[in-house]
Amino acid sequence: MINIITQFAIFIAIFLYGMTVMRIGLYNLSHKRLKQVLVNMTSTPLKGMIIGTLITAVLQSSSAVMVITIGFIAAGLLTFKQSIGIILGTNIGTTITTEFITIDLIYHAIMPLLLIGALLLFTRKLLSFNIGAILFGLGCLFVAMNGFETLAKPLSTIPVIHSSIELSNENNLIGVGLGTLLTAVIQSSSATTGIIMGFMSENLVTLSSGIAIVLGANIGTCVTAFIASIGANVESKLAAYAHIWLNVFGVILFYPFIKFLGAAAAMVTSLPDVQLAHVSVIFNVLSSIIALPLAGLLAKFILRMHGKQA
């Protein structure tokens, strides 16, 4: 049992390491305009959502974009109200990772990605280094995904994990809690989704349970931004609260429609992991579109709820 858990922890570490390395390469290729774009092109919630989506798609991490946003707010470069549109965009942009790791053809390119990426990492040219970081990081993601699928069945034999899976399969609310807790611990909703995809590929987790866990992952990912706001100014804390409330409201809104979301995804593909990726996109896009015209009301709600304590 210890060996299985150790291997699982190693694959989580490989996944997070791959995300970090890939993010470094992507960030280095785009950082010169990142600050300018975030500060100058978020004057309305719609613009903020578009920019938040694009930057999250580039950095492959909603948590990273939220930490950057909170840092800019703390520095007085952005306002709390500007952050609402960015938050909506980060929720959409982060779904690109889960869609990307469902592409089966890339699994056959794992070794070339790792080898070419590693070689480019040792070059002196910055452009080559950044491309190498992207390729090597991508290779690590697919190594981890293979690991999750391989370890899914052995992990399911561990009593605690077996009980958790059974409970989440029977009760979607437990699945939401499990997704929240797991993401809060490993600090990556993409990693949580990747793990659940591995379990679903082995038919250990039902589609409804997988969707519930992904909904919970959206709440769990707020922990990173909340930690980043500790000790910062009032507007930074308000942005962190807005991030939490937006995701909580989204989960509450779509929780009753889990079966409908699953049925919609099943109409598009028969592959369980791809179904989950599609549901993640549908949930986050619809949540952001619904919340967009209510951005002003949300800002007032956050100020009323947390203005004094922030």
Rank of each mutant, 00 (worst) to 15 (best):
C140M: 13
T94F: 06
I131K: 04
F80Y: 12
N91H: 03
A118C: 09
C140P: 02
G147D: 00
T95C: 12
K81F: 06
F100R: 03
F142H: 02
E99Q: 15
I84Q: 05
I101D: 00
L88N: 10
S83G: 09
K81P: 06
I106M: 08
Y107C: 02
S83W: 03
T123K: 14
T123Q: 15
L88G: 08
L120K: 01
M111Q: 12
G139Q: 08
L77A: 13
L126C: 08
D104L: 11
L126D: 15
M145S: 14
F80I: 04
T95F: 06
V143M: 07
G89T: 04
G76F: 06
G147T: 02
V143K: 02
S128T: 15
M145E: 11
P112I: 07
T98S: 08
T97H: 02
L78A: 07
M111T: 13
L120H: 00
A144E: 07
Y107F: 15
K125Y: 14
I116Y: 02
I86F: 06
K125D: 10
D104V: 10
A133W: 05
D104I: 12
G93I: 04
L113M: 15
A109I: 14
R124K: 15
A109T: 08
I87N: 05
G139S: 12
L115T: 08
S128F: 14
F100V: 11
N130S: 14
S83M: 07
H108Y: 09
F136N: 02
N130G: 05
I134N: 04
K81S: 14
F142R: 01
L119M: 11
N146Y: 09
T123W: 04
T79M: 07
L119A: 15
L105E: 14
L126W: 12
S128V: 08
T97R: 02
I103A: 11
M145L: 13
G85E: 08
T95S: 12
F100D: 00
L77R: 05
I106C: 03
M111I: 15
A133D: 04
T98V: 12
N130I: 10
L78T: 07
F136G: 01
T123L: 13
G85C: 08
D104R: 15
L88K: 11
A109S: 06
L113N: 09
L141V: 10
L78Q: 08
I96N: 00
F100C: 06
